[in-house]
Every structure is written in C-alpha cells, then in structure tokens.
C-alpha cells in the first residue's frame, strides 16, 4: 500500500515522561516520525506536540488510535486534509566572502529571511515557511558553503 504523510496535532499532559511514552510507542511498533516539536500551551498543564508521520493508510489509522490510547494523550487532531497553517523555521550559518555578501542578502530578502548575526566570514540567516521553501533557500545558499543549520520541526494549527 502506498505510503502517505500525516500531520498530527496532539494535546498531552505536560508531565515528565510523556514524550518518551510517545516516542516509545513509535519505536516499539516500528512507526515513522518525520518531525516532532513540543511546547507548553497557554495552559501550563497541557503541551502541544506537532508531528509529521508517514505510513500506509492502515498504519496511519493505527498510529492515531494508539496515540489516543495513551493515558496522557488528551486529544489527537489530524490536520491532514483540513484547512491549516504550518510553519518551520531554519537557522542557517552560511559562508559570506566579501564578494558574495550582496548576493546572499538578496536571496535572504527574496525569501523574507532575516540576518540575525554577522561576522567577517559568515551570516546567520533565519527563514520560516514550509519545508519546500526552506529547502529552496538551502539549495540556493549551498554554493556559498553552508557551515551549520538548525531546523525546527513542523508546527501547525487548524484555521478558523
């Protein structure tokens, strides 16, 4: 069966060990996590986990059911196929030789990125967007020499 992606927004008790219950479920049952991000919500007792998973449709169904079965999971929202907004952020440290600086700034501008830090030899650039936008800027910056990158996983909320 064909492998699909699934974007889940999961509300969980903000307690020690909850994340390991979730990741343990995935490793124990051989499910895929493509990205994961977690933070507290406005209610300090609740955290939101945003997760991209992949698998065949029956596996995706099992993933949701198994997550719901965890005692610390309050709600599993499947955003796939819904109206939602999603973002990722990347911090990119790129080599910036004097004669490349203008070009790098121009690219950053096109992608509505921001330069957060500058030294003699490099820029640190922040971009947000979806995965393809971030991949696009990474491709454009690659020829200059990317030293390091840090990416958040995907975060998302339903519209309306």
């Amino acid at each position: 069966m064909e492998v699909q992606k699934q974007l889940l927004s999961i509300l969980v008790d903000n307690e020690p060990g909850v994340l390991s219950r979730i990741t343990g479920l995935f490793s124990g049952r051989g499910y895929n996590i493509e990205s994961l991000s977690v933070a507290e919500t406005t209610d300090p007792k609740v955290s939101r986990v945003t997760m991209v998973t992949s698998g065949s449709p029956p596996i995706l169904e099992q993933i949701q059911k198994q997550l719901n079965k965890l005692i610390n999971v309050i709600k599993v929202i499947d955003l796939t196929g819904q109206e939602y907004v999603k973002r990722e952020m990347a911090l990119i440290k790129v080599n910036a030789k004097p004669d490349h600086k203008a070009e790098i700034l121009r690219i950053t501008d096109i992608f509505r990125g921001q330069v957060l830090d500058v030294s003699q030899e490099h820029f640190m650039i922040m971009v947000t967007g979806d995965t393809s936008k971030i991949n696009a800027i990474l491709n454009l910056l690659k020829p200059f020499g990317i030293r390091e990158i840090a990416k958040t996983g995907c975060i998302a909320l339903s519209r309306g």
Binding site: P16, G17, S20, R21, G24, L25, G28, I71
Partner: peptide
C-alpha cells in the same frame, strides 16, 4: 522501573 515497564503496562507512575 517506570522506564523499563512503559511498553508493558497500561500506565505507570512515579
């Protein structure tokens, strides 16, 4: 033991 038994209990607590 909470870590060890996480996958083989319905739930556990420290």
């Amino acid at each position: 033991i909470v870590g060890i038994t996480r996958p083989c209990t319905k739930h556990n607590y420290l």
